[in-house]
Amino acid sequence: HSTEQTEIADRPVCDSLNSGSLQLVSKLKNPSGSCSVDVSVMWWEEAGFKEPRIITACEYVVSLWKPMDPCQWEKIHTWHFTEVPVLQIVPVPDVCNLVFVALGNLEIREIRTLLCSSDDKNEKQKLLKSGNIKAVLGLTERRLVSSSGTLCDQQVEVVTFADDGGTKEKQFLMPPKETILTFAEVQGMQEALLGTTAMNNVTIWNLKTGQLLKKIRIDDSYQATVCHKAYSEMGLLFVVLSHPCAKETESSGSPVFQLIVMNPKTTLNMGVMLYCLPPGQAGRFLEGDVKDHFAAAVLTSGTIAIWDLLLGHCTVLLPPSSAQSWSFVKWSGTDSHVLAGQKDGNIFIYRYS
């Protein structure tokens, strides 16, 4: 497998911009030749020892990579798909040794659990859900929420997993009668779940009872809002949103992320902060990921930009590498690394500091 991984450049690849820097620590090369779609890092347990593993997804192949030393990763397992292509990996926190993937063409048609056993006789993948799936998110406490169906027969379902990947419990949430675009957990509140809808509402559910607690109308100026992070403080709900359809304005430049505060009791809400590109940078939000108080986005220009949400400004810009645009970016859930992917399957791992 060593030929699948190129040498490591031990040098900063990007000059510090307003206090942040990225250092390339490792590179994974995809030999399959098919289009790369996603990457994720998860914990894996073997003989009582937990270590991070990287999952890479191409259109028809999902691969599991094991760390051989701090900078070298070796591919140890692959799952192949023949009919429906992979759309995304669905990370589920608190779950070890199980990979969840969403498959489909433009929309999700299936969610599958991928298992890795040494015994080839065992089934290596299980169909978890199929149908017209609009949104999916892995939640803490070994849960996964998904919405499916049309507005007339919409289902919002939470599945809790057993250790073997089987379904331990199922719970249905009250549907909002609007197409759900994304879900988000409320940090520190295990029973609260948020959704964003095509009608520009933020919905709040009680995960324990299934109640739809509130629909909160947010600013109409942005469509197709994605919720990346939410937390509750002093009775108010703060949400970090991105706006793939946001247009550049003269006053604030190009907004990529936005922090909104809402009062769940009154549904009144307002913008707190717009996270825009530095002057002279063009591009809209294409894809992104938020972890703690850092937000990373791939822009339509092919550049990756990172914001410190507390400082309020962009800290690093990572232009396309080897004349190839970036196509996705993820924070590692296990450390302060950034995983940046290109369509041809190359995954670059950077240390962010």
């Binding site: 009680n206 109640q211 009775g235 505060v261 009791k265």
Partner: peptide, 23 residues
């Protein structure tokens, strides 16, 4: 804009909304 524009705030909003919302 200020915090006052958001109306009366409750620290227990989640519990209160859960008790008010239909089951």
């Amino acid at each position: 804009c200020s915090k006052a524009d958001l109306g009366p705030i409750s620290l227990n909003w989640f519990e209160e909304l859960s008790s008010e919302a239909p089951p």
